[in-house]
């Protein structure tokens, strides 16, 4: 599904190198988790994959189902099936959440040569998916993320993901800021999308989320590299011992 090879990234405006050779291969239907200390480059990796400006790829590639992501515009990556649930979802005053969702869904359908959803069909689907995530009509009407609580913003990310039905989902700390019940809602939302074909890359600091969304593979990232890869037990090890041992081993 997603294959990242030797990815090196620096900041465009400064001589600061953030990613120093990332290799990562996620097969169809697989769930991978990335953990790692603050500032290790996890969000940068997700932004670079999604196509945010400000970063320069100095080496490497990232292929999504055989297509080079790094040469596409962000909207083309989305249409190709990539989705990033932001660590910090963006507030957009003046753009209604519903308008935003419908524009996004229809833009992707159009890019793929599919017919746009009728207003009625769209409404029906949104209402149903929103209900599952306990997102009320008021939140759908309000401007995108404006005045949403931290947890509401994260639930709104998952709603977008559910509406867009991407093939490769990256979740950047979607669990942070969620209370116990919301964590369950969000995890259920994610698990509902697991169909054996869709793949996930879950960035998190906590084992707790991984109790709900069981990963197949866990990676530890530090200093812009993946320094360890293992099974779900690796997350448990981090949870109990922190990163000191792992960093020491490699260091």
């Amino acid at each position: 599904m997603l294959e990242i090879k030797n990815l090196h990234v620096k900041l465009e405006e400064e001589d600061k190198v953030i990613l120093r050779g990332i290799d990562l291969k996620i097969g169809p239907g697989e769930v991978h988790a990335i953990m790692g200390p603050n500032g290790s480059g996890k969000s940068t990796l997700s932004y670079v994959l999604a196509g945010r400006e400000g970063y320069e790829v100095t080496e490497g590639s990232a292929m999504l189902e055989g297509q080079e992501l790094l040469e596409m515009e962000p909207e083309e990556r989305a249409a190709a099936g990539l989705f990033l649930a932001f660590q910090y979802p963006v507030e957009i005053p003046g753009v209604g959440n519903m308008t935003f969702l419908r524009t996004a869904v229809n833009a992707q359908r159009k890019a793929r040569g599919e017919e746009e959803l009728s207003a009625a069909d769209f409404l029906k689907v949104v209402r149903e998916k929103a209900k599952g995530l306990k997102i009320d009509a008021d939140m759908l009407k309000r401007p995108v993320n404006v005045g949403f609580s931290g947890g509401e913003k994260k639930r709104n990310e998952i709603l977008q993901m559910a509406m867009l039905e991407p093939r490769m989902c990256i979740l950047d700390e979607t669990d942070s800021g969620l209370d116990v019940d919301a964590m369950k809602l969000v995890s259920d939302g994610v698990n509902a999308l697991r169909d054996g074909k869709r793949s996930f890359l879950v960035i998190t600091h906590y084992q707790r989320l991984l109790d709900h969304i069981r990963p197949d593979v866990v990676h530890i990232m530090a200093g812009g590299r993946i320094i360890r890869t293992g099974g779900p037990e690796l997350a448990l090890e981090v949870e109990t011992n922190g990163y000191a041992d792992i960093l020491g081993e490699v260091g």
């Binding site: 909207e75 989305a78 963006v90 957009i92 996004a104 833009a107 992707q108």
Partner: peptide, 8 residues
Amino acid sequence: FYLQSRGV
């Protein structure tokens, strides 16, 4: 960027 990342 947020809008573009949703395919807009």
